[in-house]
């Protein structure tokens, strides 16, 4: 099994890595230190590993790293930081949408994917958009509120990302 050097643009930064083909994007992201991308099942069932690949929400556990060669990846830690949180992240923190937090990075990426194409979603659209992201703690209600709140804040203020 040959290794190959691939180029990934992760959170705005170019990275080059050499790896064999049987490595998933989830694995390479975590190995590169993007541990905000979580592993909850490694088979598409939970959404904890969700990232944006060229702007589209994907489960990174179901993408081979080579398939992401030359493409752009955005993870929750690329969206904002403690000092400069993205409005979506602020909204999650403010509405009680975060309990154990393990689903949160994936949820936030699903929210970003939704709001990028639908800045003013209905409750039903929000629920549908996060339906592949399991949360065992919150019962989703406060997450749904957070997404609506994030939409309001972005509409009111200017999306930093």
């Amino acid at each position: 099994m040959d290794e190959r050097t691939i180029r990934l643009k992760i959170n705005g930064r170019e990275r080059e890595v050499s790896l064999p083909p049987n490595v998933t994007l989830l694995r390479v992201l975590r190995d590169l230190g993007y541990v905000d991308v979580k592993n909850g099942c490694e088979k598409g069932d939970c959404g904890a590993c969700a990232v944006l690949l060229d702007g589209k929400l994907v489960n990174s556990c179901l993408v081979l790293a080579w398939q992401a060669d030359g493409r752009e990846i955005l993870t929750a830690s690329g969206l904002g930081s403690i000092e400069h949180p993205h409005p979506i992240q602020e909204a999650f923190a403010d509405t009680g949408a975060v309990q154990c937090g393990y689903c949160t990075p994936g949820m936030i990426m699903a929210t970003k994917a939704l709001l990028d194409v639908n800045p003013d979603p209905s409750e039903e659209e929000i629920r549908e958009a996060i339906s592949g992201n399991l949360c065992r703690c919150t019962g989703y209600a406060q997450i749904v509120e957070a997404v609506a709140e994030a939409a309001r804040r972005i509409a009111g203020g200017g999306d930093s990302g």
Binding site: R30, V35, D36, V37, K38, N39, T75, A76, S77, L79, G80, S81, I82, P85, H86, I88, Q89, E90, F92, A93, D94, G96, V98, G101, Y102, T104, P105, I108
Partner: peptide, 21 residues
């Protein structure tokens, strides 16, 4: 008061480090 939990923002920006990390 329904204050923002002290652990919330770190989790939202993905900087909270869990055991597997």
């Amino acid at each position: 008061r329904p204050l923002r939990r002290v652990d919330a923002l770190g989790k939202a920006v993905g900087s909270t480090v869990y055991a597997a990390d």
